[in-house]
Amino acid sequence: MNIFRLLGDLSHLASILILLHKIQTTRSCRGISFKTQALYVTVFVTRYLDIFTDWVSLYNFTMKIFFIASTCYILYLMKMKYRPTHDPSIDTFRVEYLLGPCALLALLFHYRFTVLEVLWSFSIFLESVAILPQLFMLQRTGEAETITTHYLAALGAYRALYIPNWIYRYFTESGQIDPIAVTAGLVQTALYLDFFYVYFTKVLQGQKFELPA
């Protein structure tokens, strides 16, 4: 564990808490992509199957359980409790275009050809693009509530912080590298660059998040 990893994980944790806070206080899931949240549940469930086979640490175990449980709870809030506030007609990204290629990539690139390892690989690839339905929705509506942009910024920061973490680990753990996670992580971070640009130049200057028409 290094400082980048810790800050990255805390940022991930914060992003979920911000999202829950947004839904509970506004009593609405307006502006949130159900598809992205459903993809995250898929990511966490397929990746964290190793809670049954490998014990890493209490920290690791608790975080895994939290990520699965909290994201499932968000799906419940969106589908049941605040269902009328969710508008499927603007959440139109075709997730099959993500699931198919990620499954194929996982079959091609993995560390061992076992169910657990291929699913892990699948989850890494899927996580890298899971935000696309959300960003697509943002692009479509052209604006977002400030709290939603804080959620996205925290999520993007989590991914960005994993990059210095890998660099640090490469030098401190005798050249150890995880090419699947690193490649997918770089792609994932790159997807946030446009968003970050608007977030830093507008939202943090106190303006509303609005995309140029």
Partner: peptide, 10 residues
């Protein structure tokens, strides 16, 4: 030196 997944990462 090697390539493997880091099991402790989330």
């Amino acid at each position: 030196t090697g390539t493997e997944r880091s099991k402790d990462e989330l």
